[in-house]
């Protein structure tokens, strides 16, 4: 993962992006949102420009230093028909949803579409 992050930093991930991390205390996937860190994937703040992406990345580092989150990094997304960001890569899309074999677990269960 370190290699992926280094590469992303050097080139800058493809915009738009969201900021994803794990909550230190309980391990949950969290997203940087308008009101700070949120567990709701739909509440993730989307950066459409490099400046906002850089701001979010700095927030990620601050969250890490403050022992709120671990492993923060920017994730390229596309905006779906409902206006929500969906990760372009299937791995990150899995983190937004939860295990594909358990629709009853993870984000897809906690934040069902249409709820």
């Amino acid at each position: 993962m370190a290699d992926v992050k280094a590469a992303a930093k050097a080139k800058g991930p493809k915009l738009p992006v969201i900021l994803i991390a794990n909550d230190l205390l309980d391990g949950d996937v969290v997203f940087f949102g308008a009101q700070g860190w949120t567990r709701d994937p739909r509440a993730a703040k989307v950066a459409f420009d490099a400046e906002t992406a850089a701001f979010m990345e700095a927030e990620g580092r601050a969250g890490f230093v403050a022992n709120i989150v671990v492993d923060p990094y920017l994730v390229p997304v596309e905006i779906d028909a409902a206006g929500f960001p969906v990760a372009s890569h299937y791995r990150e899309a899995m983190r937004q949803k939860g295990p594909s074999i358990h629709p009853d677990m993870g984000k897809q269960a906690d934040y069902p579409l249409g709820a």
Partner: peptide
């Protein structure tokens, strides 16, 4: 034995 995985520890 404690890892951090995709969705959780």
């Amino acid at each position: 034995g404690l890892y951090l995985q995709l969705h959780a520890y």
